[in-house]
Each structure stands twice: as structure tokens, then as C-alpha cells.
Design a protein around this nucleic acid. Structure first.
Lengths: 224, 224
DNA sequence: CCAAAAGTGTTAGTCGTACACCCATGT
DNA sequence: ACATGGGTGTACGACTAACACTTTTGG
């Protein structure tokens, strides 16, 4: 390969992330408003250009910190978007990641050097986004559904533990189906992914629920 | 984003493919010998640099045609390798695909402008490869195992149909486990992925086997 | 003691697994 | 007729799905 061949010049790489949370039964995604061109003033996913001396994951985490103020997010690659015209300035290939986090653990910086209005938006009410980010987000939502069924992805939503009713509502919210309480409990326990603690949730007028945590395991037994 | 910021300059994209086949119960991968620098004379996966005006998948297919003479391979993205030093000439991010094909349907061009000795090699006996291709291949093998369990990926190995004993041997070869003939048949039929034809295989001294084909379906029910 | 939500157990049906016999072919 | 490998059915155990009552708390 000849380094100066124009065919290989002027390529850039975007890192793009769809970061989800679940808030009172509503699945939401983190979006921001851009302060700079291109797409100045428009909504977008958390994203930016990769530097030429960093790993893709490193660049993604850097962008998330710069544009939303949060760090060390667990992310999974889910797709590439590479239409040569997807960015108006130059050719940018988008490498796309998804993650899910506890919104109360990560404090979003609403306003940064390059962004404003960073916040969680219900995935059913997403405005028009910059670039091809609406398309990317739709794909991310599909992948999120697949991944929570076949992995312990949700451990990152509940780093400090969860109750059975809580996590059941999350599965129901993301997958749009309902489960029997008793069978749900049996099924998720049978995967071996989670384990109970001796902690109890705070009371609010009814029977307190036991708190469970995800084990540190990479077992890939399907959940549903 | 400022297009001329040196942080974003001198980035390139490699497309890399691990193309598998199964030959008499042996899982093999297509590798080639490079005629040019870097890594002149060394083995590598089928790969090359993306042009700045093409989609990633288009570039991948072009490279496969240029370097192995075959076209229209079904490929799935499985990982990104982005160590800034993975290529000696300039920073190249590797976008990696895997596929599996019928080796009798695709005639490999052993010798091309840029490559020689293109051929199928058993995955248990892979030489040292250029770049980080050994690492990429190992990841591809892991992903291949996952994918044949949860998708109709193998339909691309048998575009014209297969017999039960044939496909059973393929699953056994890739997954390194053995199945009971009768239960294997029931399980793969129960997925609804395949359907029988009225064709029979050619005889060779024993009872001829029925030929089955994969249906055109995107159902994601797990196979095993 | 009442309302609200959590926790538990049993039964029926379905699915997976183990296993043995018959069938179609070429020689 | 025999050797080779393909095709089928059944019975048992494991898992899944449906379902109702009891428990703990705050008010």
C-alpha cells in the first residue's frame, strides 16, 4: 500500500455511542445538543472524531467524557456506518457502540465546551438527530434488546444491586413483554448470573424487597 | 471539527476478513501470501485498505475479489482492532468480518497481482500471519462458534442444500462436540430454519440422504 | 386492621435426551 | 445377502408455564 495514494487520503473515523438507561420503567437514551458546525444547534448522539494515536475504545470514552462528563462506561461495538456522504465535511466512518448505565450513578454534565442540554430522552420520543444518528439509534435499540437477552449487560445498569421487581420492570420495558413474577424470579436465578445479598431496599409502605447483584461471570447462558 | 487538525490526519482503515469453509469435517480459513510490502512474502488474512469513496462492506468485497478472486460473500462484522501501532506504515484501524462459504462453489484465484498461494488452511494449523491477523483470526473463530449456534449463518456454506449427516458433521467440527443423529435432526428441524426438498444426494453404496435447504428467514431462535 | 407489594410452591404440559430397530442402496 | 449409512419412534427426566395464597411493611 502506498501511503500517499489519494484513494486512502482524507478518511476519518467517528466514534458514536448510544448510552441507555431505564428510568421508572421508561427506556431512555443520552443525547446532546451540538454547539459547533456541522449540525450546530442540532441534537445528536454522544460522538466525535477519533484521534490518530488512540484506540477506538479510548477515543469513544474520551468523547463521552468531553461531551457528557461521564467516564468508564461499559460499551459494546454493534455496527459500522460508512456511507461516504454521511458527514458533510469529509469522509467519516462511524464506529458505533451501545451501553446501559445507572442514571443516578453518573451525573451528566449538561453543558460542556462543545455541547449543551445533554439529557436522557425516552426512546419513543427522539427528535431529529444530526448525521445518520437516528438510523444508528434505531439499530442500537434492536441490538440492546438482543443483548439483554443473551448477556449480563444489565449488570452495568445496576452496579450496586437491584430488587427483583425492579429488574423485572427493566426487562419488560426494554423487551415490551410482561413476565409472571414467580417464573421471572425462577428463570433469572437459574441463569446463575445473579446472587442475593443480605441487604433490603428502603421501605415505602409495603414489604421490603431483597437486593440482588450480578456476579462477576462471563457465562453466556441465555436469559430469555 | 476542524478538518485540518493534525489529530485527525493520517488515519486509514483496513478491511479484514476471516472466510471459513468446512472440508471433510475440517474447519478451514482462507489465507494468502503477500507479494508486497509491508509483510512481503508473509501469510495474511484477506484484507486491504478501504478507499475513501466506498462503503466498508463494498471495500471488503472488492478486496476479497482482488486478492482471492471470489465475489458476493456473506459477511458479518465481528470486531475492530485499533492499536495505533498495528500497521508499520501508518495508523490503520482494522474493521473485521467473518463469513463461511462452500469451497466447491467459489473457485479461489491462487495467484493475483498482489497475492499468491491463496488457499484453505485448517484452523488448527495456522502459520504466523502478518499484522495482528493471528489475534484477529482467533477472535473470528470464537465468534463463528457463537454465530452458528444462534443464526442461519451456515446457509451460506450450503447455498444449494445439504443432507442431515453433512450438516451435523459441520456443527460437530466447528463446535467440537458430538450429537445424537436422531436428536440432531429433531432439533434443527424444530428451529424452523430449514426445510426438506424432494432431491436426494448421489449414492455411494448406502442409503441416499434427503437434501434440505435453509429457508429465507431471519428468525433468531437458537439452534443449540 | 387494611392496603400495597414481595415472597413462595405445586401441577400440567412441553421439550430435550437417551436409546434400538428398520430401510435403501451398491456390491 | 451383506455391509454401509440413513431414517424413524418411544419413554423418561428436566425444564417451562400457569396459577393462588401468605408475609411484611406503613399508615
Amino acid at each position: 500500500m502506498e501511503v500517499n495514494n489519494p484513494r486512502y487520503q482524507n478518511q476519518g473515523i467517528h466514534v458514536v455511542s448510544a448510552i441507555f438507561t431505564v428510568d421508572k420503567g421508561i427506556t431512555k437514551v443520552l443525547i446532546i445538543k451540538r454547539k459547533n458546525e456541522p449540525f450546530k444547534g442540532e441534537w445528536s448522539l454522544v460522538s466525535g472524531a477519533l484521534y490518530n494515536d488512540e484506540e477506538v475504545m479510548t477515543g469513544m470514552q474520551r468523547e463521552i467524557k468531553e461531551k457528557a462528563g461521564i467516564e468508564n462506561i461499559h460499551l459494546e461495538l454493534f455496527d459500522i456506518f460508512s456511507n461516504p456522504k454521511r458527514s458533510p465535511l469529509m469522509r467519516m466512518v462511524a464506529i458505533c457502540y451501545l451501553g446501559i448505565v445507572d442514571k443516578d450513578k453518573y451525573k451528566i454534565l449538561k453543558d460542556t465546551l462543545k455541547t449543551s442540554d445533554a439529557d436522557w430522552h425516552p426512546i419513543e420520543q427522539i427528535p431529529k438527530l444530526a448525521y445518520d444518528h437516528n438510523e444508528i439509534l434505531n439499530k442500537a435499540i434492536d441490538k440492546l434488546k438482543e443483548r439483554i437477552k443473551e448477556s449480563d449487560l444489565l449488570s452495568h445498569l445496576y452496579p450496586t444491586g437491584f430488587t427483583m421487581p425492579e429488574i423485572q420492570k427493566v426487562y419488560e420495558s426494554i423487551l415490551n413483554i410482561e413476565f409472571d413474577r414467580r417464573n421471572f424470579r425462577k428463570k433469572i436465578l437459574s441463569t446463575g448470573l445473579i446472587t442475593e445479598t443480605n441487604r433490603m431496599e428502603k421501605f415505602d409502605g409495603n414489604k421490603p424487597a431483597k437486593i440482588y447483584v450480578f456476579k462477576d461471570s462471563q457465562d453466556v447462558k441465555n436469559v430469555f
